[in-house]
């Protein structure tokens, strides 16, 4: 098993931390993982993206040209990464603020309304976990249990009471995917 994923959006949307939780979840299942951010000034308000690779064997390059799965959360990221999904791959995008939807026909495209869902949950901070839930519904590369374990590992103890809320967000994200 090898899964090459890019997650892209605005800085502040939780793109990097979503990737980090995904990578840690892979670690909980004894997979090899890499997490490679685009870092630097562009994180502050501009676009941010992160490449996450989960694999059963040693991972070569953390830098990729094409991806099995792209999760894009704004128009700029969609423009940049739509063409970089491998044929047969998956593109998940949040419809909020998208005026030019993806047009490729050789990949599986899922439109989700994660931003809308945060209004329903009354919690804007749950956005990235909703998106992660949607991703895991389409591509169950790690189990929800592993994600919860990863959250326990990465969150400081004082934030552990937020884990049930995160779990709820994950489940809501999963329910956003309609085949």
């Amino acid at each position: 098993m090898k899964e090459e994923i890019v997650i892209a959006g605005f800085g502040g949307q939780g793109v990097l931390s979503m990737g980090k939780i995904l990578a840690y979840s892979g670690l909980m299942e004894d997979k090899e993982v890499t997490w490679m951010p685009s870092y630097g000034p562009e994180q502050r308000g501009g676009t941010a993206n992160v490449t996450v690779i989960l694999s059963d064997s040693r991972i070569s390059s953390p830098v990729l040209n094409t991806y099995d799965t792209a999760v894009v959360l704004n128009q700029q990221s969609l423009d940049k990464f739509e063409s970089k999904v491998k044929p047969g791959g998956v593109l998940i995008y949040d419809s909020y603020g998208i005026h030019m939807p993806p047009a490729r026909t050789d990949i599986r495209i899922y439109q989700i309304e994660a931003m809308e869902a945060t209004f329903e949950l009354k919690n804007a901070k749950a956005f990235n976990m909703i998106v992660l839930g949607a991703l895991l519904k389409v591509k169950p590369m790690v189990s929800i249990e592993s994600v919860i374990k990863a959250l326990k590992k990465t969150l400081p103890e004082r934030h552990h009471h937020l884990i049930p809320m995160n779990e709820e967000a994950l489940k809501m994200g999963m329910s956003l995917i309609k085949e």
Partner: peptide, 10 residues
């Protein structure tokens, strides 16, 4: 280099 410094791995 910056890549190995910023990258996360096991």
């Amino acid at each position: 280099d910056g890549l190995v410094g910023q990258m996360m791995e096991k």
